[in-house]
């Protein structure tokens, strides 16, 4: 088998198993309220860690200033309860303009 086929199959089956296990466990075993509380807090913790590393890092190093500046702009807009579209476009536009001006 070709290397690409191996990667695709292993990744597809493994990923689907990960996704399904959470769903299936939920119905089969009685999950204590405390564990459910931790699971939903855990989802937020994971998402915040994803956004922090996504905003600041690239391949294990610093991503440059333009990206975190854009995310910060989006964060400020979100904090001020701006519509979702304004948050997303504001973040991308800030980063794009900073790059145009020569920031990393």
């Amino acid at each position: 088998m070709n290397a690409s086929v191996v990667v695709i199959l292993a990744l597809a089956l493994g990923t689907y198993a990960f996704r399904l296990v959470g769903l299936v466990l939920h119905g089969r075993v009685e999950i204590p309220a405390r564990a459910q509380e931790l699971a939903s807090a855990g989802a937020v913790v994971l998402l915040v860690a994803l956004l922090a590393t996504g905003a600041l890092t690239e391949s294990g190093g610093f991503a440059g200033w333009a990206r975190p500046a854009g995310v910060l702009a989006g964060g400020v807009l979100a904090w001020r309860r701006a519509p979702f579209v304004v948050v997303v476009l504001g973040a991308a536009a800030t980063t794009a303009l900073l790059r145009l001006a020569g920031a990393g």
């Binding site: 994803l50 991308a92 794009a96 790059r99």
Partner: peptide, 21 residues
């Protein structure tokens, strides 16, 4: 990268988790 899309994704997540935070 020139379109700033790499900033859009973390910003989407910020907007989505902010109410819970």
């Amino acid at each position: 990268a020139r379109y700033g899309l790499d900033a859009a994704f973390p910003a989407v997540l910020v907007a989505l988790v902010l109410p819970q935070l």
